[in-house]
Design a protein around this nucleic acid. Sequence first.
DNA 1: ATATTATTAATAATAGTTATCATTAACATA
DNA 2: TATGTTAATGATAACTATTATTAATAATAT
Lengths: 139, 139
Amino acid sequence: MEKPEKLKMTVQRRVILEEIRNAGTHPSTDELYLAVRRRLPDISMATVYRNLETLAEHGLIRRLWEVGAPRRYDGELRDHYHVMCEQCNRVDDLSLEAVDGFLDEVRRVSDYDVQGYRLGFYGLCPDCRRGAPDRRPAA
Amino acid sequence: MEKPEKLKMTVQRRVILEEIRNAGTHPSTDELYLAVRRRLPDISMATVYRNLETLAEHGLIRRLWEVGAPRRYDGELRDHYHVMCEQCNRVDDLSLEAVDGFLDEVRRVSDYDVQGYRLGFYGLCPDCRRGAPDRRPAA
DNA sequence: ATATTATTAATAATAGTTATCATTAACATA
DNA sequence: TATGTTAATGATAACTATTATTAATAATAT
């Protein structure tokens, strides 16, 4: 996850990082773009994409692999899981005991060099289960 | 997963279904398109996409949600897991005892109406771990 | 201060997928 | 068997998400 290149701390990079950490949620690339643009109106979408990946490569944020497109990132680095709403696509945290135990089992039965897993849950969020919104900001 | 509409069994649909079932692997949309086109040279890509979703909605095949784009489907309907190679992106089966047990735990701690989960493993396939190919047919 | 090099904004390009629509084929019914 | 109804098709445009390109600029080292 780490990359040993030297990271220049540009304003854009710093603001992106701050916005992710403040978010609490797990903003998608374009949600983040909107948030960041409130502070840096001239920032480019490409810069957001570039920095999200860079920050993730350097372990400052985490990319959520369980969700589909558009991408989502998380400022929380500690292990935890996610639930995504099938209807409005929002993503929430899930505090759960680690399931790493079965990674050993997986490594035993697989001839892959198994490095990790992607695990996410889906269903209806509290709002949607009571027939509320259908925002679907993302696929 | 079921949809009660009447399904017309067109040649295209039948061939797509047959090719998935014969595949053994977990063909991506374009791999499947190539395979099907050997038997139906005039089939449209849109038809392949449409039918893959339709067949999945009717429970005749399964969409693999754990993998990214491009999509992959599976003719095997019984529960099992998948490993994807980080380098060449091939996807293999994994026979493993069900981990459904913790779905109860998830439902207990979450205020979502949790319907299921997506679980997949990643790492290097036997070929890639010995420094072999880097096909990367998919992201 | 200056040199070095990563980073930027803008934008074109690309991958994957979905929507549109006029035509056609599947199936039910007469 | 012919006919009507409706789902499905092929062609293609449109769209979403993402990556590549490039000349200009800003961050850090010297």
